[in-house]
């Protein structure tokens, strides 16, 4: 077990958690009841995936030698648990890590804004996820492979949901077309990071555990191109891509997400809920 692998698991888990968090913000506020329910199902899927992955990450973490453990996460709250010699669990992973120890891509933390932004963000992410989990099924890590296999069924459904909405809005009314185009173009700057190999990705791919993101690039772009085309949307212009999430450098959004999400655990430490 390596710290590298731990970070890899966390990358996947953090994507799922933060994406689920954003989608869950729609619950009770959707444009129509049926879609409120549909989107919450998707949020629940992401949350479920995050939990399996955090449980696995915690297991991995607890097996590390103490000296290594102390170096991985710097938050005082986690340091205190490690100093006490206790094992950590899924909730410690989600609620006690600081922002710089979160490795999700910048895309998933972007605000919901409206149904078009939500659909575009989902389309970009779900399409990546679909190909990513397809590859991860072949991981030499059996747990990851099993999680990938289970998640893939859900992700296939997510991708269908987001593709259909992007098409509907793009090819719907003049207003929806305009909004959809704006969302697709704005969020484009956060898509470059999806298939960029950072150190963790490279090491895990080399070890036979991770997915070759270079291979995903064209698959992702082709799939997205098709959907945008059917949606009568213009392909966003290639330009500067925002990076850093996978290495813990985030947009301003993550701080607010964590402040809200972690508030209970941070305010009332060491309690059962």
């Amino acid at each position: 077990m390596s710290v590298q692998k731990l970070k890899y698991i966390l990358q996947i888990a953090d994507n799922a958690l933060i994406m689920g968090h954003r989608l869950s913000e729609w619950c009770g506020h959707g444009p129509i009841l049926e879609q409120d329910i549909a989107l919450t199902n998707i949020a629940l899927d992401h949350l479920g995936q995050a939990r399996s992955l955090y449980q696995y990450a915690a297991e991995q973490f607890n097996e590390l030698p103490r000296a290594e453990q102390e170096k991985v996460f710097t938050s005082p709250a986690l340091q205190a648990i490690i100093a006490g010699g206790q094992p950590i669990d899924e909730d410690d992973m989600a609620y006690l890590r600081d922002g710089w120890d979160f490795y999700n891509v910048l895309l998933v933390e972007q605000a919901n804004k409206d149904w078009a932004y939500t659909a575009a963000r989902s389309l970009y992410y779900d399409t990546f996820n679909y190909h990513f989990y397809t590859g991860l099924q072949n991981s030499n890590d059996e747990t990851l492979a099993a999680i990938a296999e289970k998640s893939l069924k859900e992700v296939t459904y997510h991708m269908r949901w987001s593709s259909e909405w992007v098409i509907r809005l793009g090819d719907g009314t003049a207003e929806s077309h305009k909004r959809m185009q704006e969302a697709a173009s704005y969020l484009w700057q956060y898509t470059g990071e999806l298939c960029t190999m950072v150190e963790t990705d490279k090491a895990m791919y080399k070890a036979g555990t991770g997915v070759n993101l270079d291979e995903l690039k064209t698959k992702w772009a082709t799939a997205i191109g098709k959907v945008l085309d059917e949606a009568t949307l213009a392909q966003p212009e290639e330009g500067w891509m925002q990076q850093g999430g996978k290495e813990g450098r985030h947009t301003e959004h993550l701080g607010y997400i964590l402040a809200e999400m972690q508030y209970m655990q941070r305010t009332y430490p060491n309690m059962e809920w």
């Binding site: 009841l33 049926e34 549909a38 199902n41 459904y157 269908r160 259909e164 509907r168």
Partner: peptide, 23 residues
Amino acid sequence: SLHAADAQMAIENARDVYTRRME
């Protein structure tokens, strides 16, 4: 029953609403 814009959406909504996506 439920509301949907078209048949495909109706089937998908039905899965979400009435089966919570049981396979």
